[in-house]
Write a protein that binds this DNA or RNA. Structure first.
Ligand SMILES: [Mn+2]
Ligand SMILES: [Mn+2]
Ligand SMILES: [Zn+2]
Ligand SMILES: [Zn+2]
Lengths: 215, 215
DNA sequence: CCTTGATTTAATAATAGTTATCAATTAGAT
DNA sequence: ATCTAATTGATAACTATTATTAAATCAAGG
């Protein structure tokens, strides 16, 4: 059973390496889709599994949450932001000696270890102070998700209410907001993954958008 | 919003403390149900969440798998068996100094850390050698799940095939096995959680039983 | 080139674990 | 004892992931 190098597999690996982040399957899916719009989420999952099985990438099974994948496989540890769930690398010297990653502990044959820190990323430290902030500061770390403006909420709500993709002008009519500003909001929301465009010039709320609205 | 002490809450906490293990919500559910047969799984989840929120117990979000809960909250680490997923305590001296659980690392304000080891528990080391074992050695750690005998499989299959709870004699008829031995097998399977008895003297396969059959 | 068989894919259904919802019940203050 | 917000059991819904399946793709040989 030889392993084939398909274009899907290649792009998935490439984009993960390029991103230099610890992406989840669906984050990577969104990235890959830009180059290969017809790819399926299942294909992303399948290949991430295969690649990590093969040791080409690492699977970070972070604490009950969504899995993240890492193109760097050599030993290092991670810190997770408790607010935005961003995962970053941590390299602490002096730990390796005391913190065996192989050997025998209490009768267990140790095959590996994971050291994981939780905390607040620099961006979320700032955000935490001004949590009322009505402007979605594009901190890029996903914190913005928790801070939709009233207009954004209105737009999302209107999209949720109408079933199937709808045009910007429909939203404008439904919300009573200016059509130009609605277009702008939709573009922002799309960038954040809360809105997608299944058909040209028609928009719909995403699953992520729905969860963002609740918070 | 004062917190009330309900009998459910009390028993859940009691049984977790008594077990001295790192139980999952459904394992604890099975234990608690013996004393309070009408309790709901949702209640177990709800209270484990509440108790861990309050700092009375600890939530162990173990590497992508099912959550485990710990009645010991003071700082110690854990090792997980990669085969049976049992979680046990590990206390390594000399780590605490090098391995900050609070402070600032790379700009992150660290609120906590988790150090998790993976390996083979002593029981699974033995089991691994004799994996063909046709006897479900009651290692208690759940490894047995992966080693159903042919008879057990037949019984489970027969239960899966018939819809709704069925009597031991129906299984005997369907499989062609002796009725006495079928009863014995059912008792074993029930002990392992693969079979339950929704009605007296009637049995059915559980979700867990279904997954066990596949492996 | 053209078949052949294995691998992989997209789409989708199914699953596991957990959380949300909601009408009915109950703890505990008054 | 009465009242009411907290809690419960039952069950639906949800999220992340895995399994299934028919169709597409590929790698060799003939
Ligand atoms: Mn990393
Ligand atoms: Mn413990
Ligand atoms: Zn953050
Ligand atoms: Zn084990």
């Amino acid at each position: 059973m030889p392993v084939r190098m398909t274009s899907q597999r290649e792009i998935i690996l490439q984009e993960l390496q390029k991103s230099r982040q610890h992406l989840t399957a669906d984050e990577l899916f969104r990235v890959v889709r830009k180059k290969m719009p017809r790819i399926s989420l299942a294909t992303v999952y399948r290949n991430l599994e295969l690649l990590s099985e093969a040791g080409v990438i690492a699977k970070l099974e972070v604490s009950g949450r969504q899995r993240h994948f890492d193109s760097e496989v050599v030993g290092h540890d991670h810190v997770t932001c408790v607010l935005c769930h961003r995962v970053e690398n941590v390299r602490l010297e002096g730990i390796k000696e005391d913190c065996p990653s192989h050997g025998v502990v209490d009768g267990y044959i140790i095959k590996g270890r994971r050291l994981e820190f939780f905390g607040l990323c620099p961006r979320c430290q700032k955000k935490n102070r001004a949590i009322k902030g009505d402007d979605t500061m594009g901190c890029g770390c996903g914190c913005a998700k928790k801070m939709l403006t009233d207009e954004q909420k209105k737009v999302l709500q209107a999209m949720a209410d109408c079933d199937g993709p709808c045009a910007a002008k429909d939203i404008a009519a439904a919300t009573g907001l200016d059509a130009k500003m609605v277009s702008g909001k939709i573009a922002d929301l799309k960038k954040q993954g809360f809105v997608d465009s299944p058909v040209r010039c028609k928009y719909g709320i995403t699953a992520e958008g729905r969860t963002a609205m609740k918070g």
